[in-house]
Design a protein around this nucleic acid. Structure first.
Lengths: 163, 163
DNA sequence: GACGATATGTCAACAACACTGACTTATTTT
DNA sequence: AAAATAAGTCAGTGTTGTTGACATATCGTC
């Protein structure tokens, strides 16, 4: 009744299915970042720099504390990386007008360019995977990833048809 | 003609779609590992220890070089982590019988137990996400992740109906 | 049986990136 | 005026990866 030979035991299949998902996430995420990681080396930067560049590009004039909320790292960790990026001219800081304590972050032209280069390989991977898998698969992909992440994070990906 | 206001410009939508995918991967992967990361601290271990424990559990009697092939790290990086796990009694090494140069790795009972605990939260996340998203979504999720990872890695997830 | 290749391990130095803890400055809010 | 907030800084620590060099045991082949 346990059906070990045929692999039809539902519990066994389920365990295998879950482990495959764990491993697919690991391999896909690692490969996903590999080209950008290689490119970053040439600038003497690491993955943390890419994250900062990416999210500043995505949210121009973001405050330091809002960026910390997204990245969920300490300000000491951020400051090392951000300091380099400002010194090297990839990011500029603007004093806030409403609240002058804030340092609002923005990519320079140089910053926009490196962001484009770094993210291009990742965009390509996603675009190819989406195209090959098809629209229904994309919806499934998004649904499962949303289910995996912590609930508060899901708000960042609200559906367009909801005001 | 560019339709900026309505958001109906297909290029614009596509860019937004790709960026959402990039971010979903980042947030989902980070949250996915958070419980295990917290548990590992209590043992004085890091995420690297979890990976070794996981893959040794998944491939009992795996050789060191095969494990290195999966993890794609240097043997020096592995040796630090593996050495700790062996010293602390989570993994045992068996001399290979066919090739006595090999050190085949296996979890101890203690190792099996910590593996179960560490992976449990991840299994739960996947199981919940799979259940909520449904079977078709799971297929889509797998298809897209397979498309994102490097082609050679895809072989690890062969379909069951192919011999 | 000698010799080159392979599997594994080890020592040392280094870099990236996260952390904690303590403290400062400027500005806003109460 | 006092408390809270935004941001920055200094110092120390730990994990995890890297490169390079070298050692030992075993296997496979000529």
């Amino acid at each position: 009744m346990t059906d070990l030979k045929t692999g039809a035991n539902p519990l066994f299949l389920r365990e295998e299915e879950l482990r495959q998902a764990i491993e697919m996430l690991y391999f896909a995420y690692r490969d996903f970042t590999s080209e950008a990681d290689a490119m970053l080396e040439k600038y003497g930067f690491g993955r943390a720099h890419h994250r900062v560049i990416y999210f500043v590009g995505r949210h121009p004039m973001i405050s330091v504390s809002d960026l910390l909320d997204i990245l969920k790292i300490t300000k000491q960790s951020l400051s090392r990386v951000l300091g380099q990026l400002v010194r090297d001219g990839f990011i500029v800081q603007h004093r806030g007008t409403a609240d002058r304590r804030q340092r609002l972050l923005e990519l320079t032209a140089k910053g926009v360019e490196i962001e484009r280069q770094l993210t291009e390989a990742q965009r390509q991977r996603i675009a190819n995977a989406y195209r090959e898998a098809g629209g229904d698969a994309v919806q499934g992909f998004r649904a499962v990833l949303l289910g995996i992440m912590d609930a508060p994070e899901r708000g960042r990906f609200a559906r367009r048809d909801q005001p």
